[in-house]
């Protein structure tokens, strides 16, 4: 997979197929990006599992915190990593010990570790880096258009009026593949510097 630009079909396929998502680094602080993403994905019907050893015994939006991936105790489709690039590798190595393996490992906006990605892909796991699943879901469903964001999708179909907690169709026509080349360039430069 070319991790500089993902085809929309790749992202769409992941978001349409995964049901359970374990979020490593989920925060109970309601201004942290991980809290935003956790809440949004839960509202869109994903089975969300918060992973954060510092908060075991507490709940995030009704879901009990789990200390580590190994402690989930049931199969999980996707692991969404809210950690800096330098903390990615140990999480991926832990994910590779799970049985069954997760289908997808997703690294959040700003996080990228090409060596870890290579390891996961060698085990047959799909990898996404430096993206946010909330933003991508909002983009492919065009819900993010409310904020003037370029969804880079088109549709002449009438969508159902969105209500709280419903899944949205992600099957719109793509205007371009993956992210804009320009923004990828910026993200890549940043990860090379760090």
């Amino acid at each position: 997979m070319n991790h500089d630009a993902y085809p929309d079909n790749y992202i769409r396929g992941i978001l349409n197929s995964v049901k359970s998502i374990a979020m490593v680094g989920a925060s109970p602080v309601n201004v942290r990006p991980s809290y935003f993403a956790f809440k949004y994905l839960a509202q869109r019907g994903y089975d969300m599992i918060p992973i954060n050893p510092g908060h075991v015994g507490k709940e995030l939006l009704g879901k009990p915190f789990v200390a580590s991936l190994r402690d989930i105790g049931r199969p999980v489709d996707m692991i969404d990593i809210f950690r800096n690039s330098s903390h990615i590798m140990p999480v991926v190595e832990e994910a590779l010990t799970l049985d069954p393996l997760p289908k997808v490992i997703w690294m959040q906006l700003g996080a990228r570790d090409d060596a870890a990605a290579e390891k996961a892909e060698a085990a047959g796991i799909k990898v996404v880096m430096n993206r946010c699943p909330k933003i991508e879901y909002g983009r492919l469903s065009s819900e993010i258009s409310w904020m003037g964001v370029n969804s880079r999708t088109l549709s002449s179909k009438r969508a159902p009026a969105p209500t709280q907690g419903m899944r949205l169709s992600l099957n719109r026509m793509s205007v371009g593949g993956g992210d804009t080349a320009a923004s990828d360039r910026a993200a890549k430069n940043k990860s090379e510097q760090s």
Binding site: P7, D8, N9, R12, S142, S145, N150, S151, L154, S155, S156, K157, R158, A159, P160, A161, P162, N171, M173, S174, V175, G176, G177
Partner: peptide, 23 residues
């Protein structure tokens, strides 16, 4: 669902707009 690139004139007519979900 192919990732085909629409041209400028198509975007000028369609980008951002879709039938109103309610009406």
């Amino acid at each position: 669902m192919s990732d085909r690139l629409p041209g400028f004139s198509t975007l000028a007519v369609h980008a951002g707009a879709q039938p109103d979900p309610t009406t």
